[in-house]
């Protein structure tokens, strides 16, 4: 029995290890090819770099300068950070207010947020682009307003679920101490919302960082975020340089991997919470 069990466990480890290798191969392949000359990438992607095909970090240097990839990293970082902060601050306030003040208007607003969650982006893709042009939100600052708008339904929904569980006595005590509702919210409610705020921040950061269509349509010609820049590298020039493509992909993966290893625990908790609630 003991022997059999041991054998079974070893088998499981073997299966898991083989699968892990399969999961890692695609990324390893990109890293390997990012060091090779473009001619050798499309013809023999599985060959290790040799003296003929190896070109060190040249793909990285050229890729970075050719499509102004540093700018793209900057735009992506700026938009992700600002949008996420806006979503957390404004949506937590909204969620708290419409939970505490129950009237027809707030119920209607809540209903609208919920209803909008099922609508796919393509429904508003074209018209939203026009509205963004008309309201001059078509730049890397204005796009944050659009992300707040698109992110609000899910964020308000998740915050509302959490606010319902906060004992109201806590807030009343704050008000009796002479705070107005706004300072009371900042001092009493917001700190309590910390766990759900982290979850929502992670879910939204992952979405915005990787989002392609919205930045492509709204600001794609002037300010290219990372996914837009990579797609442009593919379609914007006559013939594609696979060396540059591989190098930019590796650079784009680095922040994701760092982020993942830094907050893996929160990411996984957030995924579970988001999936079950959303």
């Amino acid at each position: 029995m003991q022997e059999k069990r041991k054998a079974a466990n070893i088998l499981i480890y073997v299966i898991l290890t083989i699968l892990s290798v399969i999961f890692i191969i695609p990324i390893a392949l990109v890293i390997m090819n990012s060091l090779k000359n473009k001619l050798y990438i499309s013809t023999s992607p599985f060959a290790l770099p040799n003296s003929e095909s190896f070109r060190g970090l040249k793909n990285y240097i050229e890729g970075l300068t050719k499509i102004h990839f540093m700018d793209s990293i900057g735009y992506s970082l700026f938009i992700t950070v600002v949008s996420v902060i806006m979503i957390i601050v404004f949506c937590s306030m909204t969620a708290w207010y419409i939970t505490r003040v129950k009237n027809k208007l707030t119920s209607f607003i809540y209903f609208m947020f919920i209803a909008s969650m099922v609508v796919p982006f393509q429904m508003v893709m074209y018209t939203m682009t026009k509205v963004a042009n008309m309201t001059h939100l078509d730049n890397f600052v204005g796009i944050n307003v659009l992300y707040l708008g698109f992110g609000s339904s899910m964020a308000v929904f998740m915050f509302t679920g959490f606010v319902k569980g906060i004992p109201i006595e806590l807030e009343e005590a704050g008000l009796i101490d002479g705070c107005n509702p706004l300072t009371m919210f900042v001092k009493v409610v917001f700190p309590v919302l910390k766990p759900i705020s982290i979850t929502i921040a992670i879910l939204n950061a992952m979405w915005i960082w990787n989002d392609f269509l919205l930045p492509y349509l709204i600001i794609g010609t002037k300010y290219r975020t990372i996914p837009v820049a990579i797609q442009y590298l593919r379609s914007g020039y006559g013939s594609i340089d696979y060396g540059h493509l591989m190098a930019t992909i590796v650079i784009a993966l680095i922040p994701i991997v760092i982020f993942y290893f830094m907050c893996q625990k929160y990411i996984i908790e957030g995924i579970v919470a988001g999936a079950v609630k959303g």
């Binding site: 306030m93 207010y97 909008s116 018209t127 026009k130 707040l148 698109f150 308000v156 706004l182």
Partner: peptide
């Protein structure tokens, strides 16, 4: 609740406006 009423513009309006610009108007226009 009455005390809260005048805080509607601070708490709800920013999110609501962004939501209207990004979603509500484009949705009905579409």
């Amino acid at each position: 609740q009455k005390n809260y009423k005048k805080y509607f513009p601070i708490f709800v309006l920013p999110t609501l406006l962004a939501f209207i610009i990004a979603f509500v108007i484009p949705f009905f226009m579409g």
